[in-house]
């Protein structure tokens, strides 16, 4: 039982973080908070991939003498690029937030909705 919990703890925390991010995105009205939630979701996906790529007793996948067991390099590559692409897309989202603020004068979803309704 203990072994089962230790072996799946990573995945459960990943799911917990993912759901916290998801909850922030769908329940909070503030745009900046939504983007932070999206980023938490993103980090949880990174953690899932890296956890899957880990091999117990392995080392960083850089070939060196004296090591025979390396962790899986493929998830590392995918996540490495995903992090940089992630910050670029986050910047795009933040740029949209700035434009929304300039157009509506607020970044709260409810107020934007009210302004749209009153038109």
């Amino acid at each position: 039982m203990m072994e089962f919990i230790l072996g799946h703890y990573n995945y459960w925390i990943v799911i917990f973080l993912m759901m916290l991010g998801f909850y922030t995105v769908i329940s909070r009205g503030n745009m900046v908070k939504k983007i932070v939630g999206l980023n938490i979701f993103q980090v949880s996906v990174f953690l899932l991939y890296i956890s899957i790529g880990n091999v117990s007793g392995g080392t960083t996948p850089i070939i060196a003498e004296g090591f025979t067991r390396y962790s899986n390099p493929l998830p590392h590559v995918l996540i490495l690029t995903a992090i940089v692409v992630g910050v670029a897309t986050t910047a795009l989202g933040l740029a949209l937030v700035v434009r929304i603020k300039e157009a509506y004068g607020t970044i709260e979803e409810d107020e934007i909705h009210d302004q749209d309704q009153s038109l």
């Binding site: 980023n39 890296i50 960083t60 850089i62 590392h76 490495l80 992090i83 940089v84 910050v87």
Partner: peptide
């Protein structure tokens, strides 16, 4: 978790630029 390249990027991107 033995992903030094990823740790590198996340430290510079997540804690710095974003």
């Amino acid at each position: 978790l033995d992903a030094s390249d990823v740790a590198f990027t996340e430290a510079a991107v997540g804690a710095g630029i974003s």
